[in-house]
């Protein structure tokens, strides 16, 4: 009873704000307003609109009708969409560990201070990320070319058969290579920045206790930057599921190896612009977003559970 009696009093206290504070609040809202307007107009509104679109069906004959969840039901039985999901899942399982492992190794190596010219190296590793994804893909498409690419030519000179890196069986690996090349430096920088923030005393104490460089890296540094690593994992998951540039650009060099449904994102684009089925594309986009959110959440909560 005393508690309930106390409540209004407390509420009153909270609401009593000095004019100065109130004007600060107002200023804060005004400052946030431009962002909110753009956020609503450029993100929330289109999102809501495509959610709305995904509930309809447009026919060349008959026009637009309400279709409920039919588009979503269709997606669950659409082999193109499901195969695309499986393909990016495989990509995720194989490519992301390699890329992040490499990034972690490079970050630790640079942070150890043992490498000479660390600053130059750091820049060099990062350069691929500065190359626009489109340019990078076009460049690799040329390097991979079975008849004209340098890789094939070198292999031929050495008497090995020219590998067809653009064939249906090898194109996924070729794509993994491009993405790894491009994003190792980026992930390395995130991890390296986190490593710089780890207090040196920890490493020194461990060294005094007799731990070697490897042991220090594994038992002190890696656990210390776990949040940063988790961040790169989440970024990589999102990036992998949204693979678009690579399939869409390599398709011109390898039209047989890459179908219009190669990745879910590319498939949604083809549906919207080749098949002109904006409604189904909107549904696919929403499903893809959901898949990404769920997997990112699962990874994050698994990580948190381990910490706890």
């Amino acid at each position: 009873m005393t508690l309930t009696a106390a409540r209004p009093v407390r509420a009153k206290v909270v609401h009593k704000v000095s004019p100065a504070v109130r004007s600060q609040h107002r200023a804060a809202y005004i400052l946030v307003l431009p962002f909110l307007i753009f956020f609503t107009a450029m993100l929330l509104a289109p999102l809501a609109y495509s959610a709305y679109l995904s509930l309809f069906r447009t026919q060349l004959i008959g026009g637009r009708q309400f279709a409920g969840l039919e588009n979503y039901r269709r997606a669950f039985t659409d082999p193109s969409f499901l195969d695309g999901l499986r393909r990016v899942a495989l990509f995720l399982v194989v490519q992301v560990p390699i890329m992040l492992g490499l990034a972690l190794f490079l970050a630790l190596a640079l942070d150890s201070g043992l490498a000479r010219g660390a600053k130059t190296l750091r820049l060099l590793y990062f350069v691929p990320y500065a190359v626009p994804g489109v340019v990078a893909t076009l460049m690799w498409g040329y390097l991979y070319g079975p008849d004209y690419g340098p890789i094939a030519q070198v292999a031929e000179r050495l008497g090995l058969g020219a590998p067809d890196l653009l064939a249906p069986g090898s194109i996924l690996g070729s794509m993994m290579n491009i993405v790894t090349w491009e994003y190792v430096g980026y992930n390395m920088i995130i991890m390296y920045a986190a490593l710089r923030a780890v207090p040196a005393e920890l490493s020194e104490a461990a060294a005094i206790d007799g731990a070697g460089a490897v042991r220090i890296a594994w038992s002190i540094k890696v656990p210390a930057i776990r949040p940063a690593i988790l961040l790169t994992v989440i970024f990589s998951i999102i990036g992998t599921f949204q693979l678009f540039n690579e399939p869409s650009l390599l398709r011109s060099a390898a039209p047989n190896a890459i179908g219009e449904d190669y990745t879910p994102n590319f498939y949604a684009y083809s549906i919207a612009f080749t098949q002109q089925d904006v409604n189904y594309a909107a549904a696919l986009a929403f499903l893809l977003g959901t898949v990404i959110a769920v997997i990112s959440y699962l990874v994050q909560s698994a990580q948190n559970r381990r910490l706890a």
């Binding site: 249906p168 039209p255 179908g259 219009e260 449904d261 080749t274």
Partner: peptide, 17 residues
């Protein structure tokens, strides 16, 4: 557009393979 894109996935695919 649809007819041609499906050609690539069906007959085109069979030609390649």
């Amino acid at each position: 557009d649809y007819a041609y894109s499906r050609f690539n996935e069906t007959i085109g695919d069979a030609m390649t393979n």
